[in-house]
């Protein structure tokens, strides 16, 4: 059973870890060194509150590590990168959606019905086009959401802000949901054995969408592993 003192120390160490923006190996190193230091102070008879007062606020300790270990220097470049890619992804999603909506086929899963009188090969072609654009829209949207979430994380001095943490989580969940939907739509023609090979553009768009989705999922996975 953990005592109140042990709980305070555990929370303190966890708060430092959360505020660290360093690779997990370095985090482990820091954890061992700070653990040794806390242990020594405990052996000297200091209480948890005294140890915390002596060592300083978690975010201050973490910030020094972040500065020294070079992550903060990268933050400006990272922020610009996240913003730029996010905006581009959003624009790509909007343009693709607008293009499809203009042709009245965006959410029309029964695209074949729209051109009722068309012959067989044309129907397949249209169906292929619909299934190829939707994954692209979803993939771009997922990437934009990921970038927005990463951008929030890269902002300095806002770690203890609950609103930010909540916003990050909502964006992560939305990105995961949109990614999953995009992946399903991208895979659907293959799973249901539609004749997508007839349309090279559809295959290319599916490939691009899959690549973007993989990036989005990678970013999400990295975020969760970091936590």
């Amino acid at each position: 059973m953990m005592t109140e003192e042990q709980k305070k120390i555990k929370k303190y160490v966890t708060d430092i870890e959360r505020a660290l923006h360093v690779p997990s190996m370095t985090k482990e190193r820091i954890n061992h060194d700070l653990g040794t230091e806390i242990q020594l102070l405990k052996e000297q008879g200091l209480t948890a509150d005294e140890i915390i007062a002596r060592m300083g606020k978690p975010e201050e300790i973490a910030e020094r590590f972040n500065e020294e270990l070079g992550k903060s220097g990268m933050q400006r470049g990272q922020k610009v990168f996240y913003l730029l890619v996010g905006i581009l992804a959003l624009l790509a999603a909007l343009l693709a959606a607008c293009f499809e909506q203009r042709h009245g086929r965006l959410f029309d899963s029964a695209g074949v019905m729209v051109i009722g009188g068309a012959d067989g090969p044309t129907s397949i072609f249209i169906a292929g086009r619909i299934s190829s654009i939707m994954p692209f829209v979803f993939a771009s949207l997922a990437l934009a959401l990921c970038m927005a979430s990463q951008f929030l994380r890269s902002l300095k001095g806002r770690r203890d802000d609950r609103e930010f943490l909540l916003a990050e989580r909502i964006l992560d969940i939305l990105a995961a949901a949109v990614s999953a939907a995009g992946l399903w739509l991208g895979m659907k023609p293959f799973v249901t054995e539609q004749n997508v090979s007839a349309d090279t553009a559809a295959l290319l768009a599916n490939g691009a969408a899959a690549a973007v989705l993989i990036v989005a999922l990678f970013l999400l996975a990295r975020t969760f592993v970091k936590k």
Partner: peptide
């Protein structure tokens, strides 16, 4: 020094 300055030197 503070921990955040010393430990990176050690690493």
């Amino acid at each position: 020094l503070k921990e955040g300055t010393l430990y990176p030197v050690l690493y």
